[in-house]
Design a protein around this nucleic acid. Sequence first.
DNA 1: GCCAACGTTGGC
DNA 2: GCCAACGTTGGC
Length: 140
Amino acid sequence: MAHWLFKSEPDVFGWDHLTALGQAGSEWDGVRNYQARNIMRQMAIGDTGFFYHSRTGLEIVGIVEVIATAHPDSTAQDGKWECVDVRALKRLPRPVTLDQIKSDDRLPDMVLVKNSRLSVQPVSDAEWQIVLELAGHSPD
DNA sequence: GCCAACGTTGGC
DNA sequence: GCCAACGTTGGC
């Protein structure tokens, strides 16, 4: 299973919004960036991702699961954009802040640090494990 | 709220 | 196909 990172402003659509939708989850719509779209096309059902609060919060707060592969974004008029569906899986015991990630010398290549503008990002297996560890997440 | 970084658009 | 102008994102 591959891992990803989804960014959203909590004022617009935050972790609490997603958890309120329960198992049904939500379209990850509104992405209007080709690189992000291409990354979403690579996602498979059952993949997991971090949920990151941008602009306010600046921390990873939870884990989401991909429940539908890329399909046309219903909020796009021209049919050019796509999205996946995700649902909230679990809140992290401790949020992992951007500062923590930036100052961790094991995470120099995280896209969150290297390309802060990309709203949907790949996360390597190693990065995934390190962030879980920082979050105090106990192994299943 | 500012503005640097980045992506997209469109005139040439 | 270049690149200036413009719009958006997101850390600060």
